[in-house]
Nucleic acid binder design. Structure first.
Lengths: 187, 187
DNA sequence: CTCAGCATGTAACCAGTTACATGATTAC
DNA sequence: GTAATCATGTAACTGGTTACATGCTGAG
């Protein structure tokens, strides 16, 4: 069976805490969105090859669900992956491709593009700041404990917050530059 | 014909300056890598639909090449795209997926992961800082001219530099935290 | 004489999305 | 009544990569 990054992520999510396919999709949504049509086949393959176990859980008022948990073989597989070198990151960002060519339009197009980006990034910043604050309040010990998964989550949140804030700052710089250049042209 | 983001990027590259497929791949390499097997079919489709023109260029000592340039229809198509809203960015970063699960290993694994990331980011920072410096020295007027494509390139470089520096800073914070926590455990 | 660079392309495959199917419950 | 949430899945497609084919030149 082929283990791609998403498969390892699914394993990592289930190792933190057993979950259904539906819950995995929700967990992934904020930092690496994936559709259920991608997750369910991965779970089926993982189960067929003995990397996860599955238990049917009856629920009332809701449909029944399949809760998956990682086997020792699955955990070993994940551990081995963590000793390898990660591939360089891949970024697909339409916004950047648009900025690349925006010089062919009037400067207003750039301004709109940057303003919208800033708004988007401000929303993301609020979202992650809130998430981190909630976790800090609820699990003040765990987030500083190297052997707790919440420690890793804290690191990822703090990275995300710092990066997003940096991008907002850049947007502000571009906007300032833009206003300045306009005033000089008009004068 | 279907216009995806890569197709618009190819159009944007050719609008800055006519190029061969081979040169487009090189241009893309630093900020949105693509293989020639992806670019050549895109060029063929663009030409078949009249969005680009193609001229055979004889070369001595090198194979002949096909140089493509954007038609007015192609430019109009690109301009229309710039008035739309970009899709939210997609990031595939193995490193982040590894950090997500690294709590199951000894703290040394996290330390190695972060140190390698820092080294990678430092290389990227040097690369883009150098690129920007060269452009600033060679085209001091263009990079502040809204109607020059170099202005856009400068914005993208400065963003990349700021983001990369921010990531290095985060790596340092994690490493500092790590050293501190270890000293407390040993004491 | 081997390797890197220039140059163009095709075929097979993997990763991920869109669209669809099914069906119950709760909130407006 | 209709939209959202819970819950699992399949089929068809798009986007992108890997591997392959071809061939010439210049540097070590």
């Amino acid at each position: 069976m082929i283990f791609n990054t998403t498969t390892y992520l699914v394993l990592g999510i289930l190792l933190r805490e057993p979950k259904s396919g539906y819950d995995i999709v929700k967990e992934l949504a904020s930092f690496r969105p994936a559709k259920s049509s991608q997750i369910y086949p991965i779970l089926a393959k993982l189960e067929a090859n003995g990397f996860v176990d599955c238990t049917q859980v009856q629920q009332d008022g809701k449909p029944n669900k399949k809760v998956y948990s990682v086997t020792s073989t699955g955990k070993a597989k994940l551990e081995a992956w963590l000793d390898t070198e990660p591939e360089p990151p891949v970024i697909r960002d339409d916004f950047l491709s648009m900025v690349y060519s925006v010089w062919i339009k009037e400067p207003e197009t750039l301004e709109r593009l940057i303003k919208d980006r800033k708004t988007y990034m401000e929303q993301r910043l609020d979202f992650f700041t809130e998430k981190l604050a909630v976790m800090e309040a609820s699990f003040p010990a765990d987030i500083h404990n190297f052997y707790s998964w919440r420690h890793c989550t804290r690191l990822l949140y703090s990275r995300r917050i710092a990066m997003t804030a940096q991008e907002i700052e850049w947007c502000n710089d571009v906007l300032k530059d833009h206003a300045l250049a306009r005033r000089t042209t008009e004068a």
